[in-house]
């Protein structure tokens, strides 16, 4: 069966005053129906640009190449009028900052009904009823009254619920969530994740869950894509990657997970900062920060994405020159830090 969404060699560049920025440098992945794919990476690794490329929401200065098939149709190069029928309908998106993502001058009901009536042939009262249902589904009390409220009358967590309600109102096959909990406090984060987990089964939408937190991936996702500097460092089934992480960047991310740091003295964060995409380092994007770097890592085009040797038939790929023995030993060490959970 063909996957619901399949991205092939997706590449996104921006024209800027300083030159061309290659924000996404040829990534491929797929999402099966009803499945959840996690995309992780530090900020600046190209996660948001990936999602906006799929949605066709990038500014004029962006150029996207490659292809993104959704239900057999390539979204890249689709005229905006066509894409508009898909956006908010077959695929929907929620964003990082719920405080600014809703229009301050319209009621929540107005904005929900707008989302519904763009894609569904409903009259006002039908759309209203649907909006109510949706608010109830995302756990907002008194939906009838709340529809008349303006965004500023909701808390951050409640606004994110509204965003989720709006995104799911047309039963999209794919929901893209770009760091939906990053801007929220810890308790609210947990509630929103819980909600998304429940809604996933209720609405049967596939989800692309973008996060910089591997903990979220562990809780919610089946597959994961580890991005660094606009490229894929490692990708595969979540269990596999937690059991046998194969890229030094993934090791870094795992070692900096708070839940895994329990029992150890301190969190180890990855030293250094993500690369400039305007002047990226030659070879592997991660080489300036990598403990295991060798001369081969500094040679363009950098390590190719390839299968992990003993993946047992699963599709687990990584992009690193490190020799197999060291890699396996280090993978075992990093995976072993984890307190059994």
């Amino acid at each position: 069966m063909t996957p619901l969404l399949e991205a092939r060699d997706l590449r996104t560049t921006f024209r800027t005053d300083d030159g061309v920025v290659t924000a996404i440098d040829g990534i491929s992945f797929s999402v099966e129906r009803g499945q959840t794919l996690g995309i992780v990476g530090e900020s600046g690794s190209g996660k948001s640009v990936t999602s906006l490329s799929i949605m066709g929401l990038l500014p004029q200065s962006a150029t996207v190449s490659g292809s993104v098939f959704l239900g057999g149709r390539d979204l890249i190069g689709l005229p905006d009028a066509e894409l508009r029928k898909i956006r908010g309908n077959e695929m929907a998106m929620i964003f990082q900052d719920p405080m600014t993502s809703l229009n301050p001058v319209y009621t929540v009901g107005w904005q929900l009904e707008e989302a519904i009536r763009i894609h569904q042939d409903m009259n006002g009262s039908q759309a209203r009823r649907r909006s109510q249902e949706m608010l109830a589904a995302v756990g907002i009390p008194n939906p009838d009254d709340r529809l008349k409220n303006y965004p500023h009358e909701f808390s951050g967590g409640m606004r994110q619920r509204v965003m989720i309600a709006m995104a799911l109102a047309n039963n999209p096959k794919l929901l893209i969530a770009d760091e939906p909990t990053t801007a929220l406090d810890v308790t609210t984060q947990a509630q929103i994740l819980e909600l998304m987990r429940n809604l996933r089964s209720e609405f049967d939408s596939a989800i692309i869950m973008i996060t910089h937190d591997l903990g979220v991936v562990a809780e919610l996702c089946e597959e994961v894509l580890v991005m660094y500097g606009g490229r894929v460092a490692e990708q595969g089934p979540v269990d596999r990657i937690f059991a046998q992480p194969s890229h030094p960047y993934t090791w870094g991310l795992l070692s900096s997970m708070p839940s895994r740091a329990q029992g150890r003295d301190r969190l180890t964060s990855i030293p250094g900062s993500p690369p400039s995409l305007l002047y990226p380092p030659a070879g592997c994007r991660f080489n300036p920060r990598c403990t295991f770097v060798s001369d081969a890592c500094r040679v363009d085009p950098g390590p190719a994405l390839r299968q992990v040797e003993d993946a047992g038939g699963l599709d687990h790929r990584f992009a690193c020159h490190l020799d197999a023995a060291t890699r396996v030993a280090e993978a075992a060490r990093v995976a072993g830090q984890e307190p059994a959970s």
Binding site: E114, I118, H119
Partner: peptide, 15 residues
């Protein structure tokens, strides 16, 4: 450039 405009576009609202 505001986020809510991006939200509107993500909903499929016409330009």
């Amino acid at each position: 450039g505001e986020d809510y405009v991006r939200t509107a576009r993500a909903k499929g609202v016409s330009p």
